[in-house]
Amino acid sequence: MSFPSLFILLYLGHLLADYPLQTDHQAAHKADQRAVGWAANLTHAATHMATCAAALALGALALDDVTLSLPVVVAALLWIGVTHAFIDRRWPVARWMKFARQQKWAQHGGAAHVDQTAHIFALVLAALALAA
């Protein structure tokens, strides 16, 4: 199984879920502490799982170097959903940026970059598991 192909497929799923498929409501409320925030967060995370599942299925059908194990796919998709939901609560990124002494960068748009880096790190780990 090809790590590069798997990663690209997962990254495509991530980009689709984070940008064209994320609603304004989800983006505005996914970190809220109330029920509406949790619903927005979990719906957004489920969208990530669905788009990554679709991308992996397409890759398995279209690419010779992508073969998948259903239990590993399920574990990888759960990992993607859980980590995405956790990162998008926003406090983990804020806490990291405080720890790393990046408060000024956070005030000038840096949190979005740290957020995306954390998501991509989670995708790399999922792709490695799928490729193993």
Rank of each mutant, 00 (worst) to 15 (best):
L78Y: 02
R90D: 10
V93A: 06
W38T: 10
V73P: 08
A45K: 12
H44R: 09
L70Q: 13
V36T: 13
I80C: 06
I87A: 07
V36G: 02
G59E: 12
A85K: 07
N41C: 14
I80V: 15
A50N: 04
G37L: 10
A39Q: 13
A54R: 01
L70K: 12
I80E: 10
A57V: 04
P71I: 02
P71N: 04
A50D: 06
T47H: 03
R89E: 04
D64S: 14
D88N: 08
V74L: 15
W91I: 06
A53M: 06
V82Q: 03
L61S: 07
S69F: 00
G37R: 14
L42S: 04
T47P: 01
D65P: 02
R90V: 05
A60T: 11
G59A: 06
L42V: 12
D88P: 11
A55E: 02
A85N: 08
A57Y: 10
G81V: 10
D65Y: 05
A62Y: 04
P71T: 07
A55F: 03
R90Q: 06
D65G: 02
I80D: 06
F86C: 13
S69R: 13
C52V: 01
V72T: 14
A57G: 05
A53Y: 07
P71L: 03
A53I: 05
T43H: 11
A60K: 11
V74W: 13
A85P: 10
T43W: 02
L77K: 09
H84F: 09
P92I: 01
V73Y: 09
W79Y: 13
A60W: 09
H44E: 06
T47V: 14
L78E: 01
L70N: 00
W38R: 10
T43K: 05
H44N: 12
T67S: 15
T47G: 14
R89P: 08
V74E: 09
G37F: 12
V74S: 02
H84E: 05
A60Y: 01
W38D: 10
A50L: 15
P92L: 00
A75D: 00
W91V: 11
V73H: 04
